[in-house]
Nucleic acid binder design. Sequence first.
RNA 1: GGAGAGAUGGCCGAGUUGGUCGAAGGCGCUCGACUCGAAAUCGAGUAGGCAGUGUUGAUCUGUCUCCAGGGUUCGAAUCCCUGUCUCUCCGCCA
Length: 426
Amino acid sequence: MLDIKFVRNNPDAVKKALADRAVDVYLDEFLDLDEERRKKLVEVEQLKNKRNTVSEEIGRLKKAGEPADDKITEMRSVSQSIKKMDEEIREIEEKLQKILLTIPNIPHETVPVGADEEDNEEVRRWGKPREFNFKPKPHWEIAEQLDIIDFERGSKVSGARFTFYKGAGARLERALINFMLDLHTREHGYKEVLPPFIVNADSMTGTGQLPKFAEDMFKLENTNYYLIPTAEVPVTNLYREEILPAEKLPVYHCAYSPCFRAEAGAAGRDTRGLIRQHQFNKVELVKFSYPEKSYEELEKLVENAEKVLQLLGLPYRVVNLCTGDLGFSAAKTYDIEVWLPSFNIYREISSCSNFEDFQARRANIRFRREKKSKPEFVHTLNGSGLAVGRTVAAILENYQEEDGSVSIPPVLQPYMGGITKITAEK
RNA sequence: GGAGAGAUGGCCGAGUUGGUCGAAGGCGCUCGACUCGAAAUCGAGUAGGCAGUGUUGAUCUGUCUCCAGGGUUCGAAUCCCUGUCUCUCCGCCA
């Protein structure tokens, strides 16, 4: 959510940001409503002031045993006017809030202006895609031949885009989760959290999933609960409605969680394999930062996520998302894309964003610079470190051998009970 | 699931026969005095949102906020209704 005062004072900047994102918002209507609200507010506050002073007087008169009937009658009508005006103001505020909640964040000045992913800007590459002397297979073929992932039974038991991991596949997934958590907690200074996987609507609004993106999520019927689409939601909302002591900043958390996504509107895309599932695992990194340090923190966050791929020996590139591809709440986002040989392209495996104070304002997460200074909004950041399912896919594809077996990256071997290779069971 | 109790400022905790209550008191914190310094002691200060003023986030003014949302009333932390959460006991359960 943007600062209403900022929108009021910088309508042109907001309009430009909206245009760059190709988003339609009725900003002029918003500005008119805002002005009307303030006008009415002044009026009603004057009336309230009158009510307060006269009511006090009535109390004094009654105590002294003097009559106050005429004043009471007068106040009766004043109170009625106040009630009416409060109602009008409330309606205006509701409209304002509704619009405000659907205005996306303003892109940072270093974000390239562009229409879609074609206009994203490649920042760097790491690692060289391996040259195969045979035709690399897609990960779902490898996995099925090794009998470590069962897509068909996943569909039977749940539906499309659900899978069973089995044997070494299940263990690989678990190994990756532990490897990532260990790396981020031991080497990168993140404190681990294991959050609830179900949250309420307030939390979803706090991080920006609601009200605009309700159809992307699974809602539990007859409740106010949602399955989390990412650990970003519970972990960022950890400090909702709180004022953090300055000495605690920056706060770093990492969290494993399953993620549930309805993938509405993605029918027909990535129908095979692990790339797009209704349920997948992810290790998430979340930061709460001083405003002036948040872009520094973003760079460090991306590097922390990259480190996972480097240690796993998976080639990747980092791209700076353009205005048209940028998520609703983000001011700037780096995607990390891992090399997938069978696709012959880089595919998103991590998304690291700085939300500046956009989520903090929605969720009311603040900090106090000095003991006596006013609370300010923190900046929030998060990034995948990494999406585990896609990492499994990348390992299977990049480490596959011609005989159908898959080598285990050395850093993962301790987590896999020392095995160096996944081979088909006899 | 059944029965009961409760939700007040950074924390603890008064206030529940409605009327100078944004809220006593204590702790904590900040500043000052004392001290070579510290402790102790003494004095002062110590919520947030919105709006106006100023103008750039000093000050001043108004207003709202005592879990949330409604209601009664000239006036509610105090009365009524609904919801949420917490605690205790019982039942059930991993």
